[in-house]
């Protein structure tokens, strides 16, 4: 029920080691990992506040679909099958290079890997980039 879980700060490229203080599936605080090679038990203000955005009221808690011009919360099945269907139609009609994929410097290595694999193997385009240029 009470645990300290090792993680990595996601607010800059330094990659400081942190511990999330977790009580019954909620985050209480962020602490620096004392023995981490990068930060050795220190953090900046962003690192110390890392847990605060996670359970924000502003977070999306489910998928949305635009229906009659407005976004409505729907099931995953519905959102996914709509997206898949539309992507397939567009690829069939205009070719795979009519699709672009923007990966992210905020998601994990595994997810970036899957996303470029998705662009290349599933859609069939090399139109994949991330926002680091920006």
């Amino acid at each position: 029920m009470y645990r300290l879980v090792p993680s990595v700060c996601s607010y800059c490229g330094a990659g400081c080691g942190v511990l999330f203080e977790v009580l019954d599936n909620h985050l209480l605080s962020t602490l620096p990992l004392k023995t981490h090679p990068v930060n050795e038990g220190r953090l900046c203000i962003k690192g110390w506040s890392l847990h605060e955005y996670v359970e924000s009221d502003m977070r999306l808690t489910g998928p949305y679909l635009r229906l009659n011009g407005r976004l409505h919360q729907v099931t995953w099945e519905r959102a996914l099958s709509f997206a898949a269907q539309r992507l397939k139609e567009i690829v069939a009609r205009y070719g795979p290079d009519s699709v672009g994929v923007l990966a992210s410097a905020k998601i994990s290595n595994e997810e970036n890997y899957l996303l470029q694999k998705f662009a290349r193997a599933v859609v069939g385009t090399n139109n994949v980039d991330h926002c680091a240029r920006l």
Binding site: V8, C9, S10, Y11, C12, G13, A14, G15, A103, S104, A105, K106, I107, S108, N109, N112, Y113, L115, Q116, R120, N126, N127, V128, D129, H130, C131, A132
Partner: peptide, 21 residues
């Protein structure tokens, strides 16, 4: 110094138009 936390990883993983991982 990379601005965003996983820019290095996104590049390493081939999230770029000209290279695989």
């Amino acid at each position: 110094l990379r601005g965003q936390n996983n820019v290095q990883g996104a590049c390493d993983m081939g999230a770029l138009p000209n290279v695989f991982p």
